[in-house]
Design a protein around this nucleic acid. Structure first.
Lengths: 222, 222
DNA sequence: CGCTTACAATGACAAATGTCATTTTTGGGA
DNA sequence: TCCCAAAAATGACATTTGTCATTGTAAGCG
């Protein structure tokens, strides 16, 4: 089995065998806290299965979702490198299983296997790049555009294979946290999108009917 | 009342000798482009002297300042790690001198000197952390709060030693790009701050009269 | 020394978005 | 199946912020 072919995107990352070998399995139920901002990192977490939101609390307790990690992704890498306390928290969006590798073992593997080290660095650099794009979007793209973009990116992140309706374990409040707004605004804009035939919704589920239309809205302000 | 202590890091980072040994000296005049988003990284840049803005273009050509690098800081580290094109551009804010280390030499040193590697990783992790804080601020803190915060952090970044009036080579447009707004809004808010006796201005210069007041405004929305 | 250009400052206005309050819908257990 | 709590949806309203237009000011250069 050939390991490590980390493409620049987030589809089906493989967890390197040497790390997997030293890992413990952890199971979390939906909406559980994995680690919390301010506490001390004890090791690295890989997402084996499920989805995790990486969040940071903003003004008056609103949570901003920094990113969403799915299968194969590594959490809290930068915190391990920085030797500091956690700079953010991680919570499950749905029932999930993770791999946990204690700090020492983690560093040991990285020391021994330059290949893995490099690929993790690349994952880190990729996160930075995404983060920078998020900054620019937040600074200059209106909520409407950000929401359109978010729907597309979430859809591609979660509906990798199936053509099923967009189904994510995210409430409107989560969506708001992801986009950087409040849930009322999300609802209002989703209503607009609905009447513009860009999406349809049934309960929590959101189905994208016109990806090109959303794409256009998202790019309208670039 | 607890004394104000905004941002405690950046005391004079030293450029590691092994890197310095292999570096070329580059001199840039004010407002010059050092590298541009989309082009291929050839090596690493250290700021020897001066100040650099790391920017990314947003909607309708507005530029968002991702961070400002001063003495001892390394530019474009994540781009070197990611093996991708530059994800942002760097421009001087004032006449500056930089050290340039070609990619190969850079990696060589990192391979040989674990100490340096670690410290650069830490610098990178620190940037990520700052970036995440920027994301949360942009998402949830009003411009007024962000501007107050920016004035304090810029003051501490540039006026490390002297008690001189805040003097940065930044126009109001730069300030707007740093905070994530437009220059008119910056001007309006600076006027407010002025009439609230928090700052005073003479031309481009901004002097902070009441750091605690600004601090309070900045934290008002946390 | 004045000219010219870039920048700062301000006002009027419209649009986007947040807040608060209320109603409707949904989905999971008793 | 019904009921209830949680979530979605919507409306009214205030505020913040961006846009456009104009004026005032400062700084560099011949």
């Amino acid at each position: 089995m050939t390991p490590v072919s980390y493409s620049t995107d987030n589809h089906a990352l493989e967890i390197p065998a040497p790390l997997r070998a030293r890992a413990d399995y952890l199971y979390y139920k939906k909406a559980q806290l994995i680690y919390q901002e301010g506490s001390t990192p004890l090791g690295a977490y890989f997402v084996e299965n499920g989805s995790i939101k990486i969040v940071k609390l903003g003004s008056s307790g609103k949570e901003q979702i920094l990113r969403i990690a799915t299968n194969g992704e590594l959490l809290c890498l930068s915190d391990l490198f920085s030797q500091c306390r956690y700079g953010n928290s991680a919570k499950t969006l749905e029932d999930s299983s993770l791999l946990f590798i204690p700090k020492q073992d983690f560093w040991k593997v990285l020391k021994e296997d330059d290949q893995i080290f490099r690929s993790l660095l690349q994952q880190l650099a990729q996160n930075i790049r995404k983060g920078n794009e998020k900054i620019v979007d937040l600074a200059y793209k209106p909520v409407r555009g950000r929401l359109a973009e978010a729907l597309l990116s979430l859809d591609s992140k979660f509906n990798t294979t199936s053509r099923e309706p967009f189904q994510v374990a995210m409430t409107r409040a989560d969506l708001a946290g992801y986009v950087g707004t409040v849930k009322e605004t999300v609802n209002r804009l989703l209503s607009e999108f609905r009447s513009e035939k860009l999406i349809s919704t049934q309960g929590t589920r959101i189905k994208i009917s016109d990806p090109n239309g959303l794409e256009r809205i998202s790019r309208m302000y670039d």
